[in-house]
Amino acid sequence: MKSGKEHKSHDSEKEQNPAPEETTAQNATENEQETAVPADHQMPDVPNDALSKTEEELSEMKDKYLRLYSEFDNFRRRTAKERQDLIKSANQDMMLALLPVMDDLDRAKAAIETATDINAVKEGLELIFNKLTNVLQQKGLKPMEATGQPFDADLHEAITQTPAGDDMKGKIVDEIEKGYYLNDKVIRFAKVIIGA
């Protein structure tokens, strides 16, 4: 027979170290309490009518998206084609305006072969040159005045320098190739000689 002290010590060991089955059951209960979803956060039951209505709306949105995408694709193709056509025919107006000048040059060429008066040929070429200049000015082409002007790297291209008087230092002494503006934009820089 065991003494009272031994019995008490055995009971106190049980309290300190509970059985493994009791520990697992206790942990499982605690885990369930931690992971349990509160009643206000649970997924509501969706009625079939609402679900089918949502599916219909989704189908309509997909249809609208596909239509919009195809309309945009058609628009993109059409504008690309129009841009290509515009590039191809961009010079048409200019060519039509230059055709009368070409006709005059053809007539002048034929007249030169049989002409005996050099002054008449000279006057004819002068008229054709003036006509060409007028057509080009109507289309926005304007010659650049460079001789005697201060050198400007935004407008002029210096070919060389030449000794010049004090009044022409840093200025353009001579113009090798004329510069041109098209609607106030430089399309060709003037090639010039600068006074040094």
Rank of each mutant, 00 (worst) to 15 (best):
K178G: 07
A108I: 03
L98A: 15
V37H: 01
A90I: 09
K8H: 15
D73Y: 02
M61F: 03
T160A: 01
L155K: 03
L58P: 14
I159L: 11
P47C: 05
D174F: 09
V173A: 07
A97N: 08
E15W: 00
K169N: 12
I112F: 01
G148L: 12
M43E: 10
H41L: 12
T162Y: 10
A120S: 15
A90L: 01
E13T: 11
D63I: 04
Q16P: 03
I128P: 01
Q149G: 01
H10I: 12
G195N: 02
I87C: 15
E6D: 13
K62Y: 06
K185T: 09
N134H: 05
H10N: 14
M102R: 11
R76M: 10
N17W: 03
S9N: 10
K122V: 10
T54S: 15
E56H: 07
G170F: 09
K14L: 13
F151N: 01
S59T: 06
N31L: 10
G140T: 02
Q26Y: 14
L182I: 01
R76W: 04
Q149C: 10
N91P: 12
E57P: 04
N91R: 14
P18Y: 00
N183G: 05
K142S: 08
A50I: 06
E55L: 13
K169H: 12
D103K: 11
E30F: 14
I87S: 14
K109V: 10
L68G: 04
D49S: 12
